[in-house]
Design a protein around this nucleic acid. Structure first.
Lengths: 217, 217
DNA sequence: ATGTCAATAAATATCGATATTTTTAGAGGT
DNA sequence: ACCTCTAAAAATATCGATATTTATTGACAT
């Protein structure tokens, strides 16, 4: 035993989560060379966990690997942002419709709960996490693990652009709370059409807001 | 220098490709525990490349990682097969329509070429690779790298079930050649509707053929 | 017989050191 | 000045050994 307080399950996992967070928030800027030695020291761990974590992040498309030439944080571009937005709309539309088609009272309750937790966390550092939880809760009744995984990946990739655009500053621009409630209500009343319309609108409005801030990519 | 004939770029990459092939073809059966030491000896390499390759395969959904408990080949199930089929239809439909919408004579030529190479390779061990090349060529004009990546992943996951069902034996059942020509012709004449109809039909027919062979999963 | 617990064995995860490869910098020639 | 080639430096990739963790076995008590 060597860890003073609580210990994360494994060094690789802890490293993975740290690096992921650093890339999403921009602490490791897009395109940046990721040197093993540098990260090893920064995170106070060995080279193996770092390499393994970077390999895992490669498949999340957050890290690019150039054979024999190391790793770098995935590059960002306006085209990439738009592609993510478009894909996200298509995939989440699909997933949400499936979720609603299989609606059950259990799912309904999980939704309401996730929404409540998100509202309660407004303004706290926990909000980001709860916000994702809510959005994923909308989709996870589709019982399509692969689709869910893709949506989760795209969600993360998109977050990165929010930080790129806003510098991670206050996110509570616009009246996002109302949009969330609209989506929730439509989902609960099992109105697939209205729910997907509200969800996609939510994304497109956010997209239109962010795109102009990303022109210098 | 130590390698007699040609040398693969890196041990990790070579290991990745080998393991991937072994999982796709069933040499490493679904659900099988993947012990580092065992693979290390089998592929005559070190533990680090093996671990890194397995980490990469994790994100391809070909390997499952259980923290602190090693790796195993992704499990297979009828539900998983059906999910892959459904998702593939949706995503490739999307990608093919985009490809056709941006059709150019360069793309057209690449398509015809890929199709020819596939036909020429019929019956040879190269066929598998050319077949994938052709299918990916249909989609790669969409200029949507992420969507393409997903399609490629799903293609691979699907191949695995073909091997599971047929033991990798002769694949030239049915008249697949005609189906391919239909798709090609529709794509070349930029008829998105016909092309996607032919493509999805191609998948669904194959799916209906395979599903009954997979009941014992 | 059966379940629990400790001791052993096996496998994973991680570290530290080394070998390769790529990048950088500089000398010499055109 | 500019290219080329070579030597040094830096970084990556890989190996071999060790520490942790999980799985297995068998004794002992119930």
């Amino acid at each position: 035993m060597e860890d003073s307080s609580g210990k994360e399950s494994s060094a690789t996992r802890a490293t993975y989560l740290s690096l992921r967070d650093m890339i999403l928030t921009g602490a490791l800027p897009a395109g940046e060379k990721l040197k093993i030695e540098q990260l090893r020291k920064l995170l106070d761990t060995g080279a193996s966990p770092v390499r393994e974590a970077l390999s895992l992040l490669t498949s999340d498309m957050l890290v690019e690997r150039i054979d024999q030439r190391g790793f770098r944080a995935a590059s960002a571009s306006l085209a990439n942002f738009k592609e993510i937005l478009t894909l996200r709309c298509s995939l989440e539309d699909m997933a949400l419709r499936q979720s609603i088609a299989r609606a059950s009272s259990d799912w309904e309750e999980a939704l309401v709960l996730a929404h409540h937790r998100m509202k309660r966390a407004a303004g706290t550092p926990e909000f980001e996490e709860r916000h994702k939880d809510f959005h994923m809760a909308l989709l996870n009744n589709a019982e399509s693990p692969i689709l869910q995984r893709y949506c989760s990946q795209l969600y993360d990739l998109n977050i990165r652009y929010r930080y790129l655009a806003a510098g991670g500053a206050g996110y509570q621009r616009r009246d996002i709370a109302t949009e969330h409630e609209e989506i929730l209500e439509a989902a609960v009343r099992q109105d697939g059409e209205a729910a997907t319309a509200a969800l996609l609108n939510h994304y497109r409005v956010t997209g239109d807001y962010l795109a102009p801030l990303l022109t210098d990519l």
